[in-house]
């Protein structure tokens, strides 16, 4: 369960940024007072155009950055005041995630398992389960730098899931991937839902959203434009397609 209330992130602007934005303000809001809930067994989608504040929101949820104000409760833990405890419950995957190319998949997964404090017994079991599921055994001893994009993505998925997180955060997970590799991510998101995990993902690909999500939030320029179930969004649509409705919502 994720409960976000009045979440705000303010960044100070340097001279260049002020010039680019055409403002004299010292600060800018990347996220401004947004609130939403994500329930276990549900897929929650965070939508918005580029620069809307999706990545900043997800970075705050994953505790990489600290909010200026507001609260984030993750699995009953206040992620703002107790980030380390919250992190144990989170799996985080982005489309732009890099991997340590000089390590092989075994070494990388073992390293992240040690960072998450996974026990040896659990590591053996989880590694076997995930390596079999993702068909990774054949290339698990190869250096990651020598793997194809698809293989690397499988290693990334394995890294995200090795500690069996109850909350999984995906930041534009299929961005820049080919259809086959993107499909493995879609399948992972579905699997997470069936395992009653709390899933939140950001995207601007409406097809993916339509296919996967149970509820959604649309943000633009850091502010909440729409929040509700996918079912209700479809019902109140005045445009012919979901993409057109999304654009209309953003521009409203």
């Amino acid at each position: 369960m994720i409960k976000v209330e009045h979440l705000t992130k303010q960044f100070s602007l340097n001279k260049e940024q002020k010039k680019e934005a055409g403002t004299t303000d010292k600060f800018a809001f990347a996220v401004n007072n947004i609130s939403f809930d994500c329930k276990p067994g549900e897929i929650f989608s965070l939508l918005g155009p580029n620069g809307a504040g999706k990545t900043t929101t997800l970075r705050m949820l994953s505790t990489v950055i600290t909010p200026t104000s507001g609260s984030i409760i993750m699995g009953g833990i206040n992620a703002v005041t107790h980030p380390n405890e919250a992190r144990r419950k989170i799996g985080f995957l982005t489309g732009s995630t890099g991997l340590y190319t000089r390590l092989n998949a075994h070494e990388l997964i073992d390293y992240f398992a040690s960072l998450y404090g996974v026990s040896n017994q659990m590591l053996i079991e989880r590694k076997k389960y995930l390596f079999d599921l993702l068909d990774m055994n054949e290339f698990a001893h190869k250096r990651i730098g020598k793997l194809s994009t698809g293989m690397k993505q499988k290693v990334s998925i394995c890294r995200t899931m090795i500690h069996d997180p109850e909350i999984v955060i995906f930041d534009e997970p299929t961005s820049g991937l080919d259809v086959i590799t993107a499909e493995s991510i879609i399948q992972l998101i579905r699997d997470c839902k069936s395992q009653n995990k709390t899933v939140i993902f950001s995207s601007h690909i409406m097809g993916e959203v339509d296919l996967l999500c149970d509820s959604l939030a649309i943000i633009h320029k850091g502010q909440m434009k729409y929040q509700g179930s996918m079912q209700k969004f479809r019902e109140k649509m005045s445009e012919k397609s979901i993409t057109a409705e999304f654009i209309k919502t953003v521009q409203a």
């Binding site: 970075r59 994953s62 505790t63 990489v64 380390n84 405890e85 992190r87 144990r88 989170i90 985080f92 982005t94 732009s96 995630t97 890099g98 991997l99 340590y100 190319t101 992240f112 960072l115 998450y116 404090g117 890294r159």
Partner: peptide, 12 residues
Amino acid sequence: RGTIETLLTTPV
């Protein structure tokens, strides 16, 4: 290489 973000999401 884009690895820092995932590193900082770990409970360390």
